[in-house]
């Protein structure tokens, strides 16, 4: 191992394997000595690491652990007010205990959403990010340790309402669902392409309101497909129930097939 920058594979803390598939086409050899002083009295230390390496490694560990325990974690992301919490209340009520469903709520402040979920009878952990605008892998790790979901359960992670920042952070979830509602602008997929590009499924919510709002469904769908051609799309109304059978089918298909092995490790 190079004694100066640690490259060469022995130092596991920061020499990491990329998880985003990015390959660098430049060479990474170290035939030159690292300790030679430059004219300006500095020496260059090569790091060559992903900025989000720590987050992505933790997310990968979470994903592996969840899969081992056949727990399906779904990351729900949207603008504030798209109906995430209402969709969750309705989904938990519809499941009616057929599959244990737990929730991790991410909000900057308050326990209001967690209290709404709690009233459905579902176990819920609230994460308040304070000034933070998104959940990251460490927050989910702490949330899961507190939640202690049983094997085979379904865990919804309601991210902070924000179509920008959560896009960059892998949490270790099984799937990412982006929700857009017809009371928003139909051009949102074009305005927030990074978010929509990370989606495994897009839910178009509040379709019961279509007769009353000026929302171009075709334009919205076209823009979503431009950003991510192969993404699945489901129009739903969380209040009236339209499209929710398809949503439940999608959730069932996303469930992990791995056999449960032991209790989810609970911290402290």
């Amino acid at each position: 191992m190079c004694s100066t920058c640690g490259c060469g594979g022995e130092d596991g803390s920061t020499r990491v394997t990329l998880v985003d598939g990015h390959t660098h086409d430049h060479t990474h050899d170290h035939d030159h000595a690292h300790d030679h002083p430059h004219d300006h009295g500095t020496r260059t230390v090569l790091l060559e690491q992903d900025i989000l390496a720590k987050n992505d490694l933790l997310a990968a560990a979470t994903r592996h652990r969840l899969t081992e325990h056949a727990i399906t974690a779904i990351n729900l992301m949207s603008s504030p007010g798209s109906g995430k919490t209402t969709l969750l209340e309705r989904t938990i009520t519809d499941l009616d205990g057929r599959r244990e469903t737990l929730v991790i709520e991410g909000d900057q402040e308050t326990w209001l959403d967690a209290q709404r979920i709690r009233s459905t009878g579902s176990k819920v952990v609230q994460i308040n990010t304070g000034a933070g605008c998104h959940l990251d892998a460490q927050m989910l790790d702490r949330g899961l340790a507190e939640l202690a979901p049983p094997d085979g359960s379904l865990v919804f992670v309601e991210n902070v309402g924000n179509l920008v920042c959560p896009a960059l952070f892998d949490l270790g979830e099984a799937a990412r669902v982006v929700i857009i509602s017809v009371t928003e602008g139909a051009d949102k997929p074009a305005k927030y392409p990074y978010m929509f590009r990370t989606a495994d499924l897009v839910l178009l919510n509040k379709i019961d309101l279509l007769p009353y709002v000026d929302f171009d469904v075709d334009l919205c769908l076209e823009l979503i497909h431009r950003v991510k051609p192969d993404v699945e799309l489901l129009p739903v109304s969380a209040t009236r129930g339209d499209g929710l059978d398809a949503w439940h089918d999608w959730l069932a298909n996303r469930s992990s097939a791995a056999a449960p092995r032991s209790e989810y490790p609970r911290r402290g």
Partner: peptide
């Protein structure tokens, strides 16, 4: 903004190394 979290990751990773 997420850039703040990104910047914190940069500084943490460098100091750690």
């Amino acid at each position: 903004v997420h850039e703040l979290a990104i910047t914190e990751s940069i500084v943490d990773a460098i100091v750690e190394k």
